[in-house]
Amino acid sequence: MAASEQKQLEFKVPNLEGVEKPIKNVIFRVSRFDPDRDREPYYRDYEVPVYRFTTVLDGLLYIKYNLDPTLAVRYSCRMGVCGSCAMIVNGRERLACKTNVLSLNSNIVTVRPINNLPLIRDLVTDLRPFFEKHKKVMPYIIRDDIEAHQDREFLQSPAELNEYMMLTDCIKCGLCYSACPTTATDALFLGPQALAQAYRYTIDSRDAGAALRFDVVDDPHGVWRCHFAGACSAACPKGVDPAFAIQQLKKLLLYKRNAMKSRKPAPESEKVREGTSVEEVLKSMPKEWPSPPAPK
């Protein structure tokens, strides 16, 4: 199909007329910022009809499609899985798609972008510093034989899985990073998300990368700068407890540094994995993944 014939995407807000009447109108006080026009962010009010099940994200999309199409808001899954719509609603870090407007018990809903990250526009922040720190702690299984045994699984008991299971729920929304008081003053601090993931992979019985991760987190701006305020755990919309993981990471560094460094990773299963081999999958993968252009 030629580019000119390509159908334009249509975004439609569900028509709720006749299904249910709005319960009340709520003022959405939204932080606005256009880098080409504004010197600093300001708030603008919008009146939004609220139904029984209207979320903050629904309210913002109502504004975008009915009142002000210039509003920039990042979202994707609309069901608390992708973590894109992280923002500060009525002073607290929340996922807009998981926050019911009526549950806020307020006729004014104040929405602003998350803290501790550069602001791009309106409610959209630049998440690159956050993901750079995430990458820095090597959030993947590290072991010498990982390339040689692509066709088998590494064995892990349910008890070993339980040690880090809670931390796998992280959706990288950045709410903990926004809530962290140390991140607010120390731009080089790795932050709760990265440190929790460092612990998650270090404690994984299949991993042998403790020494590499310890070098990263045992730094003047690493794990020791956490003051255990606990704001990260309070902010997490998925029930992850980064504050706990960070204290456990400190314990590993103090008491188990050598034991973790010399720990033998879990053995591989004798059973060969069925289905498409990893080699075949790797062959079909593009050499370079396309990525969107970086924001200006």
Binding site: T185, D186, A187, L188, P220, H221, W224, R225
Partner: peptide
């Protein structure tokens, strides 16, 4: 030292 490193960053400062 910890307080000062949290208030400001940079290799020279550190």
């Amino acid at each position: 030292r910890v307080l000062l490193l949290e208030l400001n960053q940079g290799s020279g400062w550190t």
